[in-house]
Design a protein around this nucleic acid. Structure first.
Lengths: 349, 349
DNA sequence: CGTTATAATATGAACGTTCACAGTGAACGT
DNA sequence: ACGTTCACTGTGAACGTTCATATTATAACG
């Protein structure tokens, strides 16, 4: 099954130099005469030689491998972050491998044995931990391995946290609805035990309080980030509160379910109920009606993570403060701030 | 920056055996006395030893690495395939790394230099080639490297094609609309130069012809798989044809844009225009109205691909015929086959 | 009791690189 | 003419494993 590999020595033989010189050319280290370099490159070309990554990394103690640990890769937000990270990594000569971790009973990622063996030089962990979790995903990781996290992070050396200011973003979204005159604003959250949900909910409650409104638990319903979960949560919420005039939903997928629930109840959006989502997924402009939502800079987040991870690997000290990227509210039709019929012009990709 | 690694020799010293014996225990090869094995395992535990993957793969010529080359990872269909593949791979002890390839001018993936160096033992390539493409992505790949493809595939040893029967699925979708009495059925395709678009269009046209209808080019408009593209394509199509009563759209994201376009034109779905999509993405039940669409078994596709790839790596011969997975039409409300108001009960995930 | 099979472990070499260091010859300054 | 510098290239060892083979101890056999 295995043919004989062409090695650096074959190249050296053909070029008439020592194989170490070929190595020099490959890594352009030291000085190599222009003429020699040309001969070596020609030999490489002729033999279609490709250095063996295993040998290379064994000798150099570098793998140029970055690991990403994430839950649901088919979730757009995760996938998009991965995409950004991959692009950044590639530009720096790193490769990313995606390893779903094994999951505990609540879907909590547990341990990723393969990852730690495979000598990633750094790890990007997307993990919005939950109250009950053991966070055991971090236990497996050697203490000196650089880590960048989105979401929960333990106290640890060599770790950078990256993310958005969830609380602030949620507050702004809620303030927008308050500014439109709404006083009874429902809230659909993610799983209540997850920190991300909690942060966004805090922002929502802060905004209400600043407006002199006491947050009511009956106005809050929990989903599970999915459209189906958002649909069900919204139905529950509407069942308890017939007087909601606005809804802030913690992500766009759930918002899609929410819109469906409202439709079924005969409530028009935005006339009867205004809706604001979170994430600004590409299809948000095509919701019915187009969705006002908080833009989540996922791709940039991915790029930033990979960039910071590479910095850490290069020995730069971790910034003490979490790195926060900006969000912004994208106003479309579902919140009622735009009037007129429904042209979709200001639409991106 | 680099602490001294604990190596197999440290373990051996602690356990009082030769390091090769530790290797034996690790790979449970040959015979090892139960008592020795226990001692070795204890030493491994005590030192928190993890074998070095580089050294291991250098010596054994195995990397347990699978590469996946794909376009848009943030596209749900690709991400979901990756997810399936990753799960299957993990169960077999393989790791998957995701490398976006460099792109040519039409977004055609070109070459992925990192991939080939990093000794993936097999490659999963998702690439729906286009007419004008050079397919150069395949040029880089050593001829003896096992490859599984979804989409276009060159003639080649050691390659398995996996996918769905696009033409047949598209024909069934179209037949469904014909069965509902529609005679003037518009069609929104992907980029016309892509084989995937072409196959689905063929299925659409076949169905029409079998029903005695001559396919008309004016009823076909091309998008780019995105919601925005579907929106624009649908507007173009409606501009040319005021009498369409149904629309078959080649993927759900474009269908979402199509629904938006129809809404803006004041056309009700399904009363004025019936719509059928393709893929059955998780949010399809939450479209307004919920979308009738062809279920695309993406996750299973990913699992199948990884499984077949591992079979190839294990030396099993490639099945001569492409492996085809079943699709099925999921009937919801957008096609008008279901009547009554709009309960969302039979909804999954 | 010697001979042979068998279980268990040790030994040496290899895998394909990189890296630190030691050479070589030419050019240069004095 | 002679050391010195400089540009370049060769040398040997190391990286941490696996693998084929050799070695030892033990048991089984006639």
């Amino acid at each position: 099954m295995k043919r004989k590999r062409t090695t650096i020595k074959d190249v050296a033989a053909l070029a008439g130099v020592s194989y170490q010189t070929v190595s020099r050319v490959l890594n352009d280290r030291d000085l190599v005469a222009e003429e020699t370099r040309a001969r070596v490159l020609a030999a490489i070309e002729a033999l279609d030689y490709r250095p063996d990554a295993s040998a290379r990394s064994l000798a150099s103690r570098r793998t140029y491998l970055l690991g990403i640990v994430t839950g649901d890769l088919s979730d757009y937000t995760h996938a998009r972050i991965l995409e950004g990270a991959e692009a950044e990594a590639r530009e720096h000569g790193y490769l990313i491998f995606a390893s779903g971790a094994e999951r505990g009973r609540n879907g909590e990622p547990l341990r990723s044995p393969l990852l730690s063996q495979h000598q990633a030089e750094g790890l990007l962990i997307i993990y919005h931990g939950a109250d009950g979790d053991s966070h055991s995903i971090f236990e497996d990781i050697p203490g000196d391995l650089p880590v960048v996290t989105i979401g929960y992070a333990p106290d640890r050396e060599n770790l950078v946290r990256v993310g958005i200011a969830n609380r602030r973003a949620a507050r702004q979204a809620t303030e927008h609805l308050l500014g439109l005159g709404h006083r009874c604003i429902g809230h659909v959250t993610g799983p209540p035990e997850m920190y991300e949900s909690q942060e966004r909910r805090q922002g929502y409650e802060e905004a209400l309080q600043e407006a002199g409104i006491t947050p009511e638990g009956s106005l809050v319903a929990a989903g599970d980030w999915s459209s189906a979960g958002g649909y069900r949560a919204t139905l529950r919420l509407l069942g308890r509160n017939s007087h909601v005039t606005a809804l802030f939903v913690q992500n766009d997928r759930m918002a899609m379910g929410a819109l469906q629930a409202l439709r079924e109840r005969g409530l028009r959006v935005p006339q009867d109920v205004a809706v604001v989502g979170f994430d600004d997924i590409p299809s948000a402009p095509y919701f019915a009606p187009s969705l006002t939502t908080v833009h989540h800079p996922l791709y940039e987040l991915g790029r930033t993570c990979a960039g910071l991870l590479i910095d850490l690997i290069d020995g730069q000290p971790a910034p003490p403060e979490p790195v926060r990227l900006e969000t912004r509210l994208v106003v479309r039709r579902s919140c009622g701030a735009q009037s007129g019929p429904a042209p979709v012009n200001q639409i991106e990709g």
